[in-house]
Design a binder for these strands. Structure first.
Lengths: 189, 189
DNA sequence: TTGGTTGGCTAATGGTCATTAGCCACCATG
DNA sequence: CATGGTGGCTAATGACCATTAGCCAACCAA
């Protein structure tokens, strides 16, 4: 559908220029039409952003849930959660980048919705770490700081990861899973 | 001086709204004058941003150099470097936040200058880690990924650190130094 | 063939913005 | 008391922008 092309183009422009600096004409040019014509397919620039961010956060949560589902051992759970986290941020770095940087540009009630989803996601990691500490698998002074640290690693990936240069997705995922396990004081295999 | 007030106000507004969304009138209002009056003290909005970012990066590099100067042992060097890194991002979180998020809004040649300084800073960490690995103090598969990870921890601090709530600067610094040492596989004391 | 719908276009509309021009009060120095 | 600079103001200027209105060609169904 034309709308999907427009959303993809908008994402690309939001990454390159930022939401505020992107004009409807820019997005239009990227799909071969004039700015006003976009309104035959989308309702507004703001909706474009909100919808992109909502899709991203929902997909991230699904990705996480699938990764850890059925796994009980804290070390394995964390391993899978971080692997999923890193791979998501590598594969969907544009989406994740916009999701992290353009929160300011979201207008209520979208902002609160997205912040809620982000919070939910952070809680999963924090709970996972807290559980691991309680069960003696991890050794961490402050689970919240540890979960922030792990999440921040992923955000970083969205910023500097490149498909065509530098370490591959596998290399990054492997390295960061290792970092995360070391970070929480899990025994390294 | 009036200019210092303006720079401080601009920084605050750039953090709150982002560079693109901040108007000269916003900055003026924050120091009790009208937008156009700002031009009696600064030359342009772009210069305000470039100058803020340049000051920040220079200060960060100085802070780093002072922290590691005269220390040779890799573990101690990394400990001090990360401590300085984290404390800088906690104490100057607004500056660091803008320095990280508004690169896109910088126009050449400012952008290249700042990117150069960032790269210099990253190289210090990478060299430090590479050296530690060579001397058997650290165990890391990819020093570049490790340096990115450590730097990303600091960027995260600039995003979520609050002076009035959550963990204190000392707590964050202590935790992240520990994280960094674990990350690079240094023996924990 | 006809009549409606789709999806494009250009031209408003009603803003907002950075920056410049030109004015003036204040104030310190002679 | 002049006078010149400082630092504020309001009013242009010359953009640019999201969104809406209104037009029209192409296509599709009857």
């Amino acid at each position: 559908m034309r709308e999907a092309e427009i959303r993809a183009a908008a994402l690309e422009e939001f990454v390159r220029r930022g939401y505020e600096a992107t004009t409807m004409a820019d997005i239009g040019a990227a799909v071969g039409m004039r700015g006003p014509s976009l309104y035959k397919h989308v309702s507004s620039k703001q909706d474009l952003l909100a919808s992109l961010m909502h899709t991203t956060m929902t997909a991230l949560l699904h990705h996480h849930d699938e990764a850890v589902s059925g796994v009980d051992d804290p070390v394995q759970r964390l391993r899978r959660a971080v692997d999923a986290h890193v791979r998501f941020h590598a594969r969907h770095r544009r989406e994740a980048f916009v999701g992290n940087r353009e929160l300011r540009s979201l207008v209520e009630p979208h902002r609160s919705t997205i912040l809620g989803l982000r919070d939910t996601y952070e809680q999963r990691f924090r709970a996972l770490i807290t559980d691991g500490v309680a069960r003696g698998a991890f050794r961490v002074a402050d689970p919240q700081l540890a979960s922030y640290a792990i999440l921040d690693l992923g955000m970083g990936v969205a910023v500097w990861f490149r498909e065509d240069a530098g370490p591959s997705e596998n290399e990054v995922a492997w390295a960061q899973v290792e970092f995360a396990l070391r970070l929480v004081g899990a025994a390294t295999t």
